[in-house]
Amino acid sequence: MIRPPGWCWCLPLAHAPVTGLGAWADGAARLLLEPTDLLLAIALVLLALQHGPRTLERLWWRVPAGWLAGALVGVALPRELLVAPLLSAALTALALLVSFRIPLPPRALLALLPLGAAGFAVVSGSAMAGHSGGLAVVLAEALTLGLVTGLLASALALLRVGWGPIAIQVAGSWIAATALLLLGWQLRHPS
């Protein structure tokens, strides 16, 4: 069976869990087992929801779309971008917007959803740069991210209970705290 180089399913990839089920499964597993990008997507979805369920319904797709675009750029880069602490700091800042329920102008939100996702994805995709199965991994990751984001947005858009906004702020604070601890860990262990 002949496959294009980007679709090799057999090589172990750096920074991707090897499930033994092929690059597509590795990509899905990467998103779930190294969930920085997943936390980012959740934070962006929560941020959109805080601007109203209609906003979320209209804009949620920008997150996986932006992530896919960024990941495709990242995987095409010549080498991995080593800026993990920067991403953790950015995730902290983003999650703080959610936890403090800071309203954003519509245009800022419109831009932040895809650009935030794309920024993270460039770095995430660059970890796959130069690997023959890297493209399949990031495509699988983008597909999984789209699925998870879509399901999350659908469920949250229906959330009409009184404690919903509080739960969203709590979730934001948990993500911010996680990212802050991760930042500390990355600064302590720079390698």
């Binding site: 703080l96 936890s99 509080i166 702020q169 709590v170 934001g172 604070s173 948990w174 911010a176 705290a177 996680t178 802050l180 601890l181 930042l183 500390g184 860990w185 600064l187 302590r188």
Partner: peptide, 22 residues
Amino acid sequence: LWLLPVAFPLVMALGGLLGMLG
């Protein structure tokens, strides 16, 4: 009721960051 549980993890993580940085 909700502000304290929102604030605590955030500040705790900040303390954690300081601890990790020595």
